[in-house]
């Protein structure tokens, strides 16, 4: 018997949508965000239209490469990763112990409050994740 994939599970999709909506309401800098599985499937995203389809797969690659570096250097577990560019920034944060992360694209490098908002969104999704 196979388990329903997270991106097809209505309860997980609903929880992820709510977590992202709350994040968007609290964080003024966020341009787009996706909740994604470790293997790069989009569970939910904001905005629904105009978000790059490949954001989830690119974020899962970034997460996996970062995990590989963390593993090679034996420096524990990845908390989050941050890419700062000249016209924006990307942050990927794992959702608790789930095989899931949230990626957020910001208009400018996020401050501590923005990172806390993202951390809160990830914690909310982890809390709402169905047991089993």
């Amino acid at each position: 018997m196979t388990t329903l994939a997270p991106h097809r599970d209505p309860a997980i999709v609903s929880a992820a949508s709510a977590a992202l909506a709350g994040f968007a309401a609290e964080c003024r800098l966020v341009r787009a965000a996706s909740a994604l599985t470790d293997d790069g499937f989009t569970i939910a995203r904001i905005p629904q239209v105009g978000t790059d389809e490949r954001l989830a797969s690119m974020a899962s690659t970034l997460q996996a490469l970062t995990d590989a570096v963390v593993r090679e250097l034996r420096i524990g577990r990845t908390d989050h990763l941050q890419v700062v560019a000249s016209e924006g920034a990307v942050v990927v944060r794992r959702v608790g112990t789930q095989r899931c992360a949230i990626v957020a694209v910001f208009d400018e490098p996020p401050g501590p409050d923005d990172l806390t908002d993202l951390e809160t969104a990830a914690a909310r999704l982890a809390e709402a994740w169905p047991a089993g």
């Binding site: 991106h7 470790d38 293997d39 996996a64 995990d67 590989a68 095989r99």
Partner: peptide, 12 residues
Amino acid sequence: VSTEVANTDREA
């Protein structure tokens, strides 16, 4: 050096 992760869509 591997970037293997769990395949979450075993149905596919």
